[in-house]
Design a protein around this nucleic acid. Sequence first.
DNA 1: TTGAAAGCGCTAACAA
DNA 2: TTGTTAGCGCTTTCAA
Lengths: 349, 349
Amino acid sequence: MKGNHTTLKDIAQQLGITVATVSRALKDYPDISPDTKEAVLTLAKELKYRPNPIALNLRSNRSHIIGVIIPEIVHYFFSTVISGIMEVADQAGYTVMLCQTNETYEREVREAGVLLNSRVDGLLVSLSDNTQTYAHLQEFMDYDIPLVLFDRVCDQLNVSKVIVDDYDGAYKAVEHIIQQDYQRIALIRGVNTTSITQARLAGYLDALRTYNIPIQDEYICECTHGLTFEEGARLARHLMQLPSPPDAIFAVADAIAIGALMTVREMGLQVPQDLAIVGFSNWEMSAVVTPPLTSVNQPGFEMGQTATRILLEQIELIQNKKLIVPTTHLLKTSLIVRGSSVRVPVHNL
Amino acid sequence: MKGNHTTLKDIAQQLGITVATVSRALKDYPDISPDTKEAVLTLAKELKYRPNPIALNLRSNRSHIIGVIIPEIVHYFFSTVISGIMEVADQAGYTVMLCQTNETYEREVREAGVLLNSRVDGLLVSLSDNTQTYAHLQEFMDYDIPLVLFDRVCDQLNVSKVIVDDYDGAYKAVEHIIQQDYQRIALIRGVNTTSITQARLAGYLDALRTYNIPIQDEYICECTHGLTFEEGARLARHLMQLPSPPDAIFAVADAIAIGALMTVREMGLQVPQDLAIVGFSNWEMSAVVTPPLTSVNQPGFEMGQTATRILLEQIELIQNKKLIVPTTHLLKTSLIVRGSSVRVPVHNL
DNA sequence: TTGAAAGCGCTAACAA
DNA sequence: TTGTTAGCGCTTTCAA
């Protein structure tokens, strides 16, 4: 039961010197006598002195906390991101304060308030699905608190963003399908308006062009009712009933791919043999997998690391009264071939 | 670009009074004139005053941070636990500082050091697999920092613990199998020495006794080489080759159940029909599932909540110089019937 | 080479 | 009813 931590004062008193001297000795100041320095150092070690971060923070007017707002922790993708964030933050001596919104705007606003009260030095946010207005985040910018968006970003905020390179991922996925000797590759895409869909469509088209595969309009279908399981099923059925059905389906979302997979199986088709199905997903690797044993890997860990690095840089810039220039970082996806079975995440079944 | 937060001083200066008065007005002190109080309150609102938690913490010599050490974040069970921890911590005005050990003792020691330096007010720990010595945790107790172990606990530390009720879970699982009309229920268990295995064995035996089902020694096998996939496969094969093979297998770990599942399938048996297989797991629901559509649910979320509540209580006790009496909390498992397919977590295949 | 003093933002005992 | 003062642990000028 000793309870309390050693302070500079404790050391100073025992040595009959002032705290200022102790502080300097501990920090290797130039003009400090070797004797006192050594005395301080040894006593500090003996008493297990640890500088009190709270006092440091009070002086520097920093918290050394970075806030993180995500839709959900219990999610493979996000927990990967958290790992990445923590690794970088830890190394830089920062604490991570985690909040989850459960995918609601209200919680997002509330958690942002909590984080602002807690004086976070910076903020990492992946927006909730139904967030349409951004005053709660704008507020951080008003206080000169750096903000970086990742994965679920928006155009309305002029801040740095980290997202996966959708074009690149789609291109690689389709290229891989082609290299597995599938020729008639269909696309199930989202509605035109979203930039994600646009990029993935472009990747699909360019891959076909590169390999001189004719683009067939009837092979490109659009999900009119969201990127859902049901839409995947409906469009896969449609595709397979064409006079000349495709031998591969590339879906811009994992749910679609799973829906398509179920459907074609019901139709009595063997998936790696008769038909390839690849889904593109931000979320879990295992969700995207499908056809001839491949997956498009979205590196959540890397995303967390990158976003945090950018944020920490910006925190430094702000400290030095320098200007932040927002940028958008596109993370490349990597294609990983693995396993021998068709993998579908159990929670989606 | 205003940058700085409003302080009591700002308000005091603008109103021509002292910070002390402002502080009191804000805290609804008894003797404070209605006029000044209102003036302070309105100005505070106008300037968006938020008390600086760091200053508060410095005074109170508390950090309002609780440390959490877990083997892995990217894990369904632990991310659930984290959710539970954060919910309770948030509500109580605490920040959670998360560390992962990646299942190594060295990391665990290191992270404990980081947390001690950060002056956490309390610590929640789920031990890494190969942690055998506990000096790094004992140190917290020396500083009177409350410590609560959860899920992966040890006997050597005299602190509060939160674990699932293994006896109860095993009993319920076996009872469920019986209620599905399986009669010859085998057990694949761990070695005698671990308390977990003992409890699960007891649950199995008691369930059989309750329902007057004879206990047959040849139906009880022991994993001699760890609770692994391979052992599950080996023992399942052994069981099914008995003169009178079982019609159900209860395994004390998920990996065992999965190994058994694979094996009996290879042997041409249909799993829900010919044979039931249930695995007991601390980890993910989906891993335990198996036979006639059931799962033993281990409430990670609840475990996180419970552990945090206990910790916060102990932090209060310590503040008031009261004694902490360590207790062990057994969480009941609940049996959840759901879905219609055999579910196995994809990462384990 | 060291000490004294101020200050980071806030609270609380003591005075007035 | 309000002001003054001291102090939480630490750093950093300014003096000595």
